[in-house]
Design a protein around this nucleic acid. Sequence first.
DNA 1: CTGAAAGCGCTAACAT
DNA 2: ATGTTAGCGCTTTCAG
Lengths: 337, 337
Amino acid sequence: MKDKVTSLDVARRAGVSRSAVSRVFTPGASASAETARKVREAADALGYRPNSLARAVVTGRSRIIGLVVAGLDNQFYPGALEQLSIALQAEGYHLLVFMSAAGDGIARTIEDLLAYQVDGIVAASVEMSNDLVSRCEEAGIPVVMFNRRQDDPRLSAVVSDNFAGGRAVAQFLIAGGHERVAHIAGWQEASTGRDRAAGLAAGLADQGLSAIAVEDARFDPDRAAQIAREIVNDGARPDAIFVGGDRMAFAVMDTLRFELGLGVPDDISVVGYDDVPLAGWPAYDLTTLRQPVERMIGATVDMLLDRIEEGKCPRQEALPGQLVIRGSARRARGWKH
Amino acid sequence: MKDKVTSLDVARRAGVSRSAVSRVFTPGASASAETARKVREAADALGYRPNSLARAVVTGRSRIIGLVVAGLDNQFYPGALEQLSIALQAEGYHLLVFMSAAGDGIARTIEDLLAYQVDGIVAASVEMSNDLVSRCEEAGIPVVMFNRRQDDPRLSAVVSDNFAGGRAVAQFLIAGGHERVAHIAGWQEASTGRDRAAGLAAGLADQGLSAIAVEDARFDPDRAAQIAREIVNDGARPDAIFVGGDRMAFAVMDTLRFELGLGVPDDISVVGYDDVPLAGWPAYDLTTLRQPVERMIGATVDMLLDRIEEGKCPRQEALPGQLVIRGSARRARGWKH
DNA sequence: CTGAAAGCGCTAACAT
DNA sequence: ATGTTAGCGCTTTCAG
């Protein structure tokens, strides 16, 4: 309960002015070695820490980044979040979390975001209305969309190259001798889901094929499982299912193996998307397209800081992913990675 | 870039004073209906939002809670974090994330925590030094430890009853006819790991048994897998392994089944702790002790708010968990839950 | 109930 | 390089 130490206290004890203290604690400022020493000494003795909030009020920069997210149950996000936080901390920023609860309107979130004077926003929720993005940009707060893009080029976005990824999956599947490929897609309202589906279609078309079924599971594992049931019991059973997200792919594999008694990949091949940690565990051993999380995070941080600190323009980046070949899909000889 | 709307602007447009505006936006303050109406109208027209940071400077309350965490790869945390954030938002607080990076010293984290004037701290990192806790409490910032406790009763803590949990596992295992129980424990420096181990020992002792092996895997799945290998190849192979955390239990099951070719539970029973979502998936179908996450979060928020807003004293709470019986461990008839 | 005035803790010109 | 002087946007006595 002794947190009443102010810069004035330090100044007095060090025999200097408040400005001097301020300068010592401001990276780009000028202070003589002697002054710095005295100030640091006094500060340590008193246990002084500059008040970031007060600083934010006057500088207009809070060094706080708002993170808008929903559904940490998608295993792709926890890891990304961890890396993002660490990368930001290294630059002297911190994440303030805005979890979009189920019913809770986006309006409230926007209010809070603005009230806290965040310097920027990372929007990592697929379900996020464009309202948020536009209203914040309007207020002068740069927002970068993570793992989702918008056609509007005035908005910053970082994604992996989902179209190329979908196409790579198609090529792999065809090379493996599959002829009846079904696709259980991510939400078609989201670029991520759409691009993967389009990539698959393009890759299939290259060889004169097309998917025998494409269903939107909205990134929901339960829905994906249900679709898998229907597809498999359908007349023309697929020999491969490309699932637009690992989390859904696990649910599909579970359904196939444990409920329908089918072998993966013996009866049906399954390919996912993301390469979350679980995909590499032997229980699933899922062939999947790896999103370059680390580079995506790097790009996100760069974009954000470029806009905040350098005032640069928004840009969009699509980083290449990589097919990780494991055992859940039949493959041609020589395709072992 | 029009975020320069200040309370003065609103005051002018509404024909009142800044104080009036302030009062309208302060829950407990007095303002006539007429004034409130005028102010709200002007505020909406101008797009005014009170600046939380400026408010924080003057009130001394930031309505920000620091979250200190590391290792979101433990699937127990993402869900807890999501719930925590939502619960806090409902009370008008937000989480500021402090991710303990690997090498990054705790000292820096403390500095930042204090600088941002957080009203309270949730410490959810097992690896966190007591230094942080004591220094923050010293500075008058309440911290509640989540999923970990300290013997010092002056510190707030929320855990599940890990001792009772460990004991329940022992009883279940014994009832299932197991006689050679091994324990791959969580970090013995952490209360969570210790209590579970002690509970198991007590439960075993009740029946005149004791564990044939107890090894500390420090919550690390790789280490757990390695220990599993050693234990199993040892002379006296266990008929059951109690693993002190689901994440480690999965690794142990993988090792047993896919590497050692053993059946679970046919050759060896495995029981975990936490009940993360994956435990319920058919690929693992893990019998485990469920931690009451929702209630733990509720208690955490209550404690925090009690201390922040009511100035109440620290307290500790140990919530009861519940054994969730699935298929990874042999069980006695009638034990199906 | 309302406005005027006095800060909260800090930084940013401006002189010196 | 340092101190002085103004604020940043807001809340909170204090009169009325």
